[in-house]
Amino acid sequence: MIANLAAGVQAFTSNAFLVTGERTVLVDAGANFDVVSAVRDRTVDLDALVLTHTHPDHVGNVSGVREAFGVEVWGHDPDHPAVDHAIRDGESVRLGDHEYRALHTPGHKDDHLCFYAASPEILFAGDLIFQNGGFGRTDLPEGDRETLIGSIDRVAETISSDLAELHPGHGPSVEGDAYGHIELAGQAARMSF
């Protein structure tokens, strides 16, 4: 089961997805809200915190999660203070009951990762792709539009057109024709380039 713990939060934050099952994992910690209480409302234990990237709105609550649950944090850049262990491109990561493939997808930020499970066709897209063809900003440090377009293309070529769910770093998740939103993001990023 996947629950967005930041849904309805009126603060500057990213989405924070609690993935429960065999391995209970938080995907992004969010910022500026009590994610620890939100996790505790749904589960007793947390096995890990996995980051799509290290922008402040995604890592603001990391220290609170570490302290409350004694978990280690996984992300692409082990030199960042929020990250304890590196996840490399192509590495397999267990979230809930499924194995996800980590895809290094820079363009919004150099350490950006997406996570894709071929079965049951779920993608955690971070700030690369949003609902209705939205895509991540490239005007921040480490942002680069050409690189972002390449990352969107890589995701589109890697995943199945039968993608069932897309869980972005901001805004609502997409269920049903999720692949179409990825195609739209690639088109939109090119049009405004």
Rank of each mutant, 00 (worst) to 15 (best):
A38V: 06
L51F: 03
V83D: 05
R40E: 15
D47V: 01
L46K: 02
D84G: 09
G30P: 07
H80Y: 07
A48L: 08
V50M: 03
H55G: 13
D47W: 04
A82F: 06
E72D: 14
D41L: 13
R94L: 12
L51G: 04
V35Y: 05
D34Y: 03
G75K: 04
G64F: 06
A68Y: 03
V50Q: 00
V50Y: 03
D97M: 03
R88F: 09
D41M: 13
R88H: 13
V62P: 09
G90A: 08
V93W: 05
P81M: 11
D41W: 11
P78V: 12
V62H: 08
H58R: 02
D28A: 13
A86D: 00
G70M: 09
V59M: 07
S63R: 14
V39M: 05
G60D: 07
I87V: 15
H58G: 00
A31W: 02
V36S: 03
F33W: 09
H80Q: 08
A31I: 06
V71R: 02
D89W: 08
L51V: 06
V35K: 03
P78A: 14
D84H: 14
D47Q: 04
H80C: 05
V36Y: 04
G64P: 01
R42S: 08
G75Q: 04
V44L: 12
T54Y: 06
A48E: 04
H98D: 15
W74T: 03
H85L: 13
T52K: 01
A86K: 14
G70T: 10
S37E: 13
V71D: 07
E72C: 12
G75R: 02
G75C: 08
E67Q: 15
E91H: 08
P81K: 11
V27F: 09
L26F: 00
V71T: 08
V93P: 11
T52A: 13
E67F: 03
V93M: 11
H58T: 11
G70L: 10
P81C: 10
W74Q: 05
L95M: 15
H98A: 15
V36N: 01
G60M: 10
V44N: 12
V73A: 05
D97N: 15
V44C: 00
D34E: 10
G96D: 10
S37F: 05
E72T: 14
D77K: 07
G64A: 14
P56W: 11
E72P: 01
N61F: 10
H58Q: 11
V65S: 06
D89N: 15
L46F: 03
N32D: 15
R42G: 02
H76L: 12
L46D: 01
N61I: 04
P56G: 10
T52M: 11
L51Y: 02
P81T: 11
A38C: 07
E67T: 13
G90C: 08
